[in-house]
Design a protein around this nucleic acid. Sequence first.
DNA 1: TGCATTAATAAACTGCACTTATCAATGCAA
DNA 2: TTGCATTGATAAGTGCAGTTTATTAATGCA
Lengths: 324, 324
Amino acid sequence: MDVNLRQIRAFLAVVGLGGFTRAAGALNISQPALTIRIRQLEDQIGLRLFDRNTRSVQLTRVGQELLPVFQRLMKDFDGAMADIREFSEEPRGTIRVAVLPSFAAGPLPALIADFRARNPRVSFVLKDAVGKRVLAMVRNEEVDFGIGVGGVDEPDLDTIDVFEDRMVLVYPRGHAAGELPLASVPVISQFPLVLMDKDTSVRRLVDEAFAAAGSIATPACEATYMSTAVSMVRAGLGLAILPASAIEIRGFADIATRPIDDAGFVRRIVIIKRRGSSLLPAVEEFTKVLLAAANSCATPSAPCLDVEVQDGGAEALAMGVQGQ
Amino acid sequence: MDVNLRQIRAFLAVVGLGGFTRAAGALNISQPALTIRIRQLEDQIGLRLFDRNTRSVQLTRVGQELLPVFQRLMKDFDGAMADIREFSEEPRGTIRVAVLPSFAAGPLPALIADFRARNPRVSFVLKDAVGKRVLAMVRNEEVDFGIGVGGVDEPDLDTIDVFEDRMVLVYPRGHAAGELPLASVPVISQFPLVLMDKDTSVRRLVDEAFAAAGSIATPACEATYMSTAVSMVRAGLGLAILPASAIEIRGFADIATRPIDDAGFVRRIVIIKRRGSSLLPAVEEFTKVLLAAANSCATPSAPCLDVEVQDGGAEALAMGVQGQ
DNA sequence: TGCATTAATAAACTGCACTTATCAATGCAA
DNA sequence: TTGCATTGATAAGTGCAGTTTATTAATGCA
């Protein structure tokens, strides 16, 4: 008994419109085609559904009994299809993402708040983790995708460049560093430096960049957290080299930043996905937003990634984002 | 979005068996056919359901979310189909039937009890009515079919002969009538007769049969109910002429019956249906039982239509049969 | 009695879903 | 690394289900 949906729809159309010709019209098929479909249905269930002659079409008693069954069936089916359609049309679900701490504390929250304001049925689970953990979590399917530093070349992972996160020199406003014609390694080296801890990716990058410029980065102070480094700068302990995207360097009237005029003081922030693994539409959508935000500025730099947080954004964030 | 049940079944098969080749085997189609079906499904809902390569097939997150939806859908559908199948396989529903009072009080209850014992999901609504009312009720669809006297020739009704209901002479056991070599109209006329009321179809038949034999039926007593007539016979008031099928003439040790040896003392009991109108399978089944019961005896006569009432038949009858 | 309407039937056609054959990717074992 | 086995994707060809157009038969109505 291979009853099919077209047969059921045909049955309901004939019932609803009270005739084969009319029903055929509504179904966009010819009347003979409909005749055959109804007959097939009747043959397959072994029951006559209509008593029909050229002048009238009437449900049999069996048809009357079965009508609500078929109606419910089609209603359920169409309801489920509507649900599924929503799935592709309106992003929904939970987006799990592993992010470098600097990015998680930087532009990401605003982007998430904005995204959630437009897609209320999406929630986020943010996991902040260092580069290697980000990779591992993506690979384990603990998260849908990751945001980390580029240069990954794993066979089972794909990366998409999001933006170049330049290192900037952070100095007290009015400091001589602001007046320099060039902020290059040799020049910077003249000043006491507040550098990040050896374990951090920022420090690694700085060390490598100094090395590439034939120099060695010598810290006057070291800090584990960027906010500490910033405080040290404000206290006049030295100049810091931090990612332009870092939220910690913004919001203070008494410090300023300037790009460093050396290649190497840049890291590529990339989206990391499992290769050959489909994502929720909501995730696809969100990565698009990330890329759009990054590309919306000609020279990708941190302030560019700022997003206008809509009213209610903060609450949405509070409700939808769960810290790791 | 014209998603199809075969596509859904294909999806569930792939999930269940974890591979296209295996699933195709289970569905009795080739593997390329299955590949196409799944792709169609994915295209139509606009979502990728499997991440697949030549070595592994894995549900996407969307697929995981949609799996229960599809499972429920197929479960509902298959459940409904099972219901429908039962409909044709196991008779069920309510059979409404209009019956001549004599037949309703005669063999019918036993037949119904027997039928219900074998088909517990069938209930009956019996309406006893005189011949014309039976026709009218069939025509109005007040009942599914009728049991009445033959000779109906209406264009919108079909009749099926069930059996010949012979009139029998009812006399007190030991009465001279039992010894007669021939029970014909002239002989019968010699005795005082208990006849049915003028309004009854039995009386009409008796009057016509007497007339055909060149005689006139002259009652010594008249009765409206057959049970009254039988009592009169038992009281020695005369001989009665009653349908052999009448239950009222049975069960008494002190009366006996014999056929009347004249043509004309017979009426055809027929099933009356609307022409071109389908009946519930249960009704079809029951009419078959009626005919079978009638045909099971070479010379159709009342005792033949007796049916062994199974244990529980009486209760079933009490529960399922509603008087008019 | 003729006309209009409607479902059934016939015949021809179209296209879709299927099959077979083949390819390409991948994992595994030697 | 190489060869083999397995598996999903693709290509090409085929058959049949479903469709259309044309026609018939039945029926109600003027």
